[in-house]
Design a protein around this nucleic acid. Structure first.
Lengths: 192, 192
DNA sequence: TTGATTTATTGATATAAATCAAGCCGCTCA
DNA sequence: TGAGCGGCTTGATTTATATCAATAAATCAA
C-alpha cells in the first residue's frame, strides 16, 4: 500500500531515514539567496529568522568585543550554519554573518520549519539528529579547546576542515582558533 | 472535553509545556539508583544505557589521557548528565561517571525514552529542547574557553556554578577548568 | 597605474601559566 | 600515638603565547 520510498539522510556518522514526503516538505521551504563577497547575511541585533545551508561559498559568523572582531564559526559548502541563540529563541543575535566569498545559501525559515516539525515528527526527528550531532562536536570542542596548544588547535582544524585553511583569510582563522595572527603565521612557517 | 492540564517545564530559560500524560510517561521510566561516594556509575568502554538526573549529590565525568584523568563535567542536584556520544550512538563510552558524594540518581534509559519519543512527539519536543539548551551552553563554552584567562574561567564557574566551587575537590575543579591545581590554588589565594 | 589600506611576516620583549620542587596540614589506619 | 598519604599551598624556573614594533606583500579604490 505504501510505495513511498524512504531516503537515508546522513548527519555526521548518524543516519536518519526520511520519507519522500518529508523531503519534499523540507525542500519546499528552502529559499535560495545569493550573497556577494563581503555582504552581510545577518547583522548583530537582528533576529535570525532562518538557518542557512551553504550550497556554494564560505561564510563566517563573528561578534564584536572591545572593537575587536571575534570569529566564532566558519562554514562552507554542504554545511548548515545558524545563529543559535537567536534562532532558537527568536531574540536579537549577537553574531553577524558575513560572506567571505560569493555564496549561494538556502535559507530554512523558522516558522515553516517549526510548523513542519509540529505536523511531521519525522522532520522533528531530523532536527533532533542535527542538534545531537552539533552538540557532540561542540562538546568535544569545548573540552579540547583550553587543553590544546595553539599548534594542536591548528593541526586539528587542518585535519577536520582543510577547506577553511585553504580559503579563509588568516586573520579569521587565527581568531577562530583563539590565537593571534602572528602566532598563526609562525605556526604555518614551521617556526613553532 | 479535554481536562488534562498542561505542565510548563523550564529548561534553562526556555519553557516547554507538557501534558500530564507525557509527564507520567516520563516519570514512569525513571529508575532510582543510589551511589556511594567514589562509586562508578559508568566505566569507560561500557555503553551508556541511560541519561541521569541527579536528585542528590554530585558526580563527575572524566576520561584518561596518558595516565592523567581529565574531568570534563561536574553535575549536581536538578541537573541532567549523559555520556553523550555513547548514549546517542549506543557505542562504548570514553567517559567514566563517578560519584563525588553519596548520590541519588534517576536513570532515564535509552530504549523506553526512544520508544516514548517515537510514540509521543511532545516528549520528542522536550528532548529537543534539552538538546537546544545544551548546545547553546556548549557553544558558548567552546568559544569562550580558549579566549579566557585562567582567572576568567574560574570567575565564570564561580558565578554560574558556585556549588561546584564549594563542594568539589580542587584537583577536579582545576581539571574541569583546564588549569593546574597550583594555578587554581594561586587564584583562590588572590595571588593571581 | 598609483597610493592607501589591510594583511602577513619577522624579531624583540613581556606575561600568563606550566612545571618542578619542597613543605605543610589534616586524614586514616596500624 | 605516630607514620604515612593525599590534597593543598608556596616558591623558583621554564615555556608558550601575547604584545609591541617594524617591514613586506597583497588588496582595493580612485
Amino acid at each position: 500500500m505504501d510505495e513511498r520510498r524512504a531516503i537515508a539522510v546522513k548527519i555526521s556518522r548518524h543516519t536518519v531515514s526520511l520519507s519522500e514526503e518529508s523531503l519534499e516538505q523540507l525542500a519546499g521551504m528552502l529559499i535560495p539567496r545569493k550573497l556577494t563577497k563581503g555582504e552581510l547575511f545577518l547583522k548583530e541585533g537582528e533576529v535570525a529568522r532562518s538557518m542557512g545551508l551553504v550550497a556554494e561559498g564560505m561564510i563566517r559568523q563573528f561578534y564584536r568585543k572591545k572593537k575587536y572582531e571575534i570569529t566564532e564559526h566558519i562554514t562552507y559548502e554542504d554545511h548548515l550554519f545558524v545563529c543559535l541563540e537567536s534562532f532558537i529563541r527568536q531574540e536579537p543575535a549577537y553574531l553577524c554573518v558575513e560572506a567571505l566569498e560569493p555564496c549561494l545559501i538556502y535559507e530554512i525559515p523558522y516558522i515553516p520549519l517549526h510548523e513542519a516539525m509540529d505536523r511531521n515528527p519525522e522532520i522533528l526527528r531530523l532536527y533532533c539528529a542535527v542538534l545531537e550531532s552539533s552538540l557532540l562536536i561542540s562538546q568535544r570542542k569545548a573540552d579540547a579547546r583550553c587543553r590544546q596548544s595553539a599548534v594542536e588547535r591548528y593541526r586539528q582544524l587542518e585535519c577536520e576542515h582543510p577547506q577553511i585553511i585553504k580559503r579563509a583569510p588568516q586573520i579569521y582563522i587565527a581568531s577562530l582558533l583563539g590565537m593571534t595572527p602572528e602566532t598563526l603565521s609562525r605556526i604555518r612557517a614551521g617556526r613553532i
